[in-house]
Write a protein that binds this DNA or RNA. Structure first.
Lengths: 224, 224
DNA sequence: GAACATACCATACGGTGTAAGGTGATGTCT
DNA sequence: AGACATCACCTTACACCGTATGGTATGTTC
């Protein structure tokens, strides 16, 4: 308190890191240029010295997320590497749920490009043809990303249980059973059973996809 | 033109239909209460007589989207029905791209519930156990939804070609080839090849998922 | 004719992203 | 040392957003 710390200047990277932290806590809709600036100790318009606008920040935030994904290293077994990538993607997106909803951005950063580059390298090194590499990445990314979005949509409490939503469903159960008998049956005999958690569905689908890719890979090597 | 048409009163359903039309044309970010009201010939605040707020409109819009998905009918072969559902989902989401980004809503409408009910009914009628039905729906929805989001993210022109983005990539190709050699290789030998369209990847993944489900289904019937 | 519901409107508030144009401190060059 | 640029920040202002509050014409019903 004796002398005011000459706080280091804001940088694009630091602004983006703080933006990520804010979004983690309050959700993406609570991230505004004014609030971000305040968190950095400056005024809103001063942010524009470091970034071109809010889109620039969102792009940077997404690149931060990509940098946290497990990236395959040269020589990794493809199936092990793809599984690790899928599971880390899921846990990273659980940590940064806002990333799912801003995923529809179109200017990738270098972490994003580096990650994709490593994935392609891993698959082609394992003998995947280029078209098969494209197939594999498309289905893996679609599945993992879609699952994460599905999971984020469900009215789950943090423990992964169906939690509070149970009551709502139960309250309307009579009506549900009439209008939507199959949905009611699934609720009663599966979803509301103790121990059921939607998150557990992830492994089934991931194994199915990896098994399918392994079969396609073997067929390709045998045939070509 | 002689007498002013005594235009019929606005209703929640009509407001939602017009909102869908506006979002189809201008994207979801261009849909505001004021613009929607103007399109309906009323003032912004009058909308609140028919809907509880913007969230209510978004929920209704999503239910409209669900109502356009191909819904299985009783007796349909499960694989045929799931394929039709997947392909119609993809084409509907192509028609309403904004639906992907607002998919993270949590209060389903009756079209949504009815659709899900029919899907569960189709699978259980085909002999899927309830847990296997859950697995099947999770992986199918995750894949289809994830693919649609992936597709919407790519910088494609309407024809599905890589189009204008090609130039951007080409311009930086020398730099790319150094920093991201695998990505550059994939661009040159796959993505930029004439005839390549990302949309074609959809079938590969869908077949893989359906094959995997068929195998799991057979195993379950044999084992249980 | 009085009461009431319906379907709309005007005004206003606090928020948003950002365009335009300062301001003072810290260099760097002559 | 003085001139000048550049950097990192600021103030003000604008058009837009969702919506809380409180109207107002026009039926319809008793």
């Amino acid at each position: 308190m004796a002398q005011s710390e000459p706080r280091e200047p804001v940088s694009r990277q630091r602004a983006i890191r703080v933006a990520v932290a804010l979004a983690d806590v309050g959700g993406i809709e609570s991230l505004s240029m004014r609030k971000l600036a305040a968190a950095l100790g400056i005024e809103a318009m001063s942010l524009y010295y470091h970034v071109t606008g809010k889109d620039d920040i969102l792009d940077g935030m997404l690149d931060v997320v990509y940098s946290e994904f497990a990236t395959p290293r040269a020589g990794d077994d493809w199936r092990t590497a793809m599984r690790a990538r899928a599971e880390s993607t899921r846990s990273v997106l659980a940590r940064h749920p806002w990333a799912i909803s801003i995923k529809a951005r179109t200017s990738p950063g270098s972490a994003t490009l580096g990650h994709l580059d490593a994935v392609i390298g891993c698959l082609t090194a394992a003998g995947f043809s280029m078209p098969m590499t494209g197939h594999a990445m498309s289905i893996l990314d679609s599945y993992v990303q879609g699952f994460a979005q599905q999971e984020a949509t469900l009215p789950l409490d943090p423990s992964g249980d169906i939690g509070a939503a149970t009551e709502d469903i139960m309250a309307q159960q009579t009506m549900m059973a009439e209008a939507f008998p199959n949905l009611a049956a699934m609720a009663v005999s599966l979803i509301l059973q103790p121990g059921y958690a939607y998150g557990n569905e992830f492994e089934f689908g991931l194994d199915l996809v990896l098994d399918g890719l392994e079969a396609a890979h073997s067929a390709e090597r045998a045939g070509g």
